[in-house]
Design a protein around this nucleic acid. Structure first.
Lengths: 150, 150
DNA sequence: CCAACTGGTTTGCTATGCTAATTATCTAAG
DNA sequence: CTTAGATAATTAGCATAGCAAACCAGTTGG
């Protein structure tokens, strides 16, 4: 019976969590367009490029857990926006190295400065203890994803 | 200075949380297709219809925080899959009432039974204390969204 | 030097959002 | 009543974002 209630509580948590994640992600997508002109996907890619230095599209796709064609398109958008630059990979003629340029860094900085960013604005209304819970949850979500791979 | 560090920690948490939510949502979308043939959006809609009884498309759009045209299409998909049924609203000729049919309930039950559902499977590997953290985070995310409306 | 592999892109499909415009019905004012 | 305006739903049209399959070009191993 302990197992039974444990399982049903897990299923319940899973269901609520799914709902919360999906809805929050939806809200983020809407908000992002207004705030920075970048969708969450684009913003995440830009941040990763910035954080992990110049890297190839494949490496980036790996980091973001999307397939290569998807990353190709995201990069095309960021390039069209003038936020990144590519140089030929000296080690491999098929490949290119992607890096954030001045405009991209500026955009990232602006974004970071934004006090009113969707989540930050809402986090400010929570108790420190609640913020800590969410910080911990973010870690757990990432760990859950990485653990069992894809 | 307290404010400064508090703010930067908030921004940091916001950024990590955004990343975690976006990536998890992406993983969910991929997984859902394999597991049940329903995307998270579709599964969420079906669950809401089931939970909240027969209701109109508008009410459902409200619950799911999407616009009506979006819900129209989601419902069309669920109907094409034979999981829901519509009856004319006796009170308003413009409207219809949407309800889950036998096949839909069967699908929901199967989904619930699924021990291997993405999140549940991963939750099972966490400490009870960690599961509790995520449950609490789910609540907080929902509350954050509802508070300031959208 | 050629065959097989691999990184990247292109192409074509699906799903999910949105807004704006249409259609059908309802409701209220005259 | 009847007509004008509001409202529910849909349709149409646009954009993003994911996938897989096919394709090109450069790399590498035999």
């Amino acid at each position: 019976m302990a197992t039974r209630t444990l399982d049903s509580s897990l299923a319940d948590t899973a269901s609520r969590l799914r709902s919360a994640v999906v809805r929050t992600s939806r809200a983020l997508r809407q908000e992002a367009a207004v705030e920075t002109g970048l969708s969450p996907t684009q913003a995440a890619a830009l941040a990763s490029i910035n954080r992990c230095g110049p890297l190839t599209p494949s490496e980036l796709a790996e980091i973001e857990h999307v397939k290569r064609p998807t990353m190709t398109r995201t990069l095309a958008t960021l390039e069209r926006e003038g936020l990144i630059e590519r140089t030929r990979d000296p080690a491999d003629g098929r490949s290119s190295l992607v890096a954030v340029n001045a405009a991209g860094r500026e955009r990232l900085a602006r974004q970071r400065r934004r006090k009113s960013a969707y989540l930050a604005r809402r986090l400010r209304k929570l108790d420190p203890e609640e913020v800590a819970t969410l910080a911990r949850a973010a870690e757990l979500l990432e760990r859950m994803r990485e653990d069992e791979q894809g």
